[in-house]
């Protein structure tokens, strides 16, 4: 993972390492940290493709205010991955367009 190892001021205390998947690929991240941060640490930059112009989007604000980081998480679209904590076994997918809301719930 692309993590800061040495820092002159900060000491990073990460929580438990857990496994999750991104578009079917298994990855590791820290439980409770934002999904977007875990993806970034795994080198993933593209989180969704916009509906009309089909442009790539990553995150922008990282504080849940801009909607840039929407992804499909465990089948649910439009999840703000920058403020949603990672849990073990999560299924994270690139969101294509507006996403489809699951109707079986």
């Amino acid at each position: 993972m692309d993590l800061i190892e040495k820092h002159p001021i900060l000491e990073f205390k990460h929580s438990k390492k857990v496994k999750f998947s991104f578009d079917g690929i298994e990855m590791e991240g820290y439980e409770g940290e934002p999904i977007a941060a875990a993806l970034h640490a795994n080198g993933v930059r593209i989180y969704r493709i916009t509906p009309a112009k089909e442009q790539t989007r990553g995150f922008f604000c990282a504080i849940g205010k801009c909607s840039s980081c929407f992804m499909v998480v465990d089948g649910v679209p439009n999840v703000r991955t920058c403020v949603t904590p990672l849990k073990t076994g999560m299924r994270v997918e690139t969101q294509l367009g507006k996403g489809v809301i699951p109707m079986d719930a």
Binding site: L3, L10, F12, H14, Y30, E33, P34, A37, A62
Partner: peptide, 11 residues
């Protein structure tokens, strides 16, 4: 966002 990534989550 850059600060959040690096200073809060160490990425």
């Amino acid at each position: 966002a850059v600060q959040t990534l690096m200073n809060v989550y160490g990425v």
